[in-house]
Design a binder for these strands. Sequence first.
DNA 1: CGATGCGTTGATCGGTATCAAGGGGGGTGG
DNA 2: CCACCCCCCTTGATACCGATCAACGCATCG
Lengths: 182, 182
Amino acid sequence: MEAYKSLADGRRQIVSFFYPGDMVGLPYVDAHRYSACALDHALLWRVSRHELELRALADCGLQSWIINNITRSLMASLDSLLALGRKAADERVAHFILELSRGAAERGLCDNPVILPANQVHIADYLGLTNQTVCKALGRLRRAGICRLMRSNRIWISDRSRLEKIAEGNQKASGAWKGSRG
Amino acid sequence: MEAYKSLADGRRQIVSFFYPGDMVGLPYVDAHRYSACALDHALLWRVSRHELELRALADCGLQSWIINNITRSLMASLDSLLALGRKAADERVAHFILELSRGAAERGLCDNPVILPANQVHIADYLGLTNQTVCKALGRLRRAGICRLMRSNRIWISDRSRLEKIAEGNQKASGAWKGSRG
DNA sequence: CGATGCGTTGATCGGTATCAAGGGGGGTGG
DNA sequence: CCACCCCCCTTGATACCGATCAACGCATCG
């Protein structure tokens, strides 16, 4: 499942991918701030805002759970802000792969290979790029021996430390193989 | 006051400007997720995480306040994600001016002219641009008769509806005056 | 007076978008 | 079974926006 915001001319920014157990939507807010769309079969538990607020008034544990959820969303958004505002295409893609890997690990799933939550068009809309740019960035990472695309929807990380360096802007994806060809 | 995230090579993304009454920092999180720096004299009320959690356990009102604060931060971040990922320079600047104007109105302050929270370098770091690009975008908005820079730290909005159209990507800042010169 | 920080403007460069074309795989219908 | 289509991925050529580089004006301050 994905959450996104759109402009009138069709430009779209995906702001989040959701996984089982995630909270979709913002409590205590009187208007929708984003749209959402299932990428696969999804089973949702709908809670009215009114009911949520009533229960939360009496249950601080529920409030803590909500705070934790929103806080995690906010932390992810802050990381994305840095990526969208200041990172180059290769760095964004590297960041995204690591984000998926860490998220899978946190959910107790396999962190390598990483399973992509959507196709490249959606990933591009999440990273503020085009699908062509994402494809070319993945190609550079592959040629640099850092990761490989498997079965078109999962990515094998062969060199995590270099991937992390690239994601943090300390190294070019193309550095090694471009320089080593002479 | 501003919150920001940086990369090792000095690239910086400002994620938020803070105003009196705002909550700085993320509760229930064990590590800092951003740096913060005062842009002016600032008076802070420091609350240890431990104390905050203790109080929140017994006080659902406090938790509601926290939820409201984080939620507002998250909503602003989502808007910024759309801006940084999908909006052109002029659109980001227009969006920023309106965001400032609306924020001032919410705080009961004058919404026109808008007071800039920092200099153009900081604004550029907030919008994922360079100061030169911000300056040129402001120049285009000024020449289009949409807004004017006053005393170098406040902006007069002369045509709010066109500013809103630009911020939402429905119109170019340069459209009117470029076309009307023949 | 020079030094410094900030804003402004112009020239050029580069990274990503855009445009275009083709390939592969899966589904559908003949 | 095959032909066809559609969606997605891939790759190359080109265009364009914003970054970079450079220079200057202006105000403030020591």
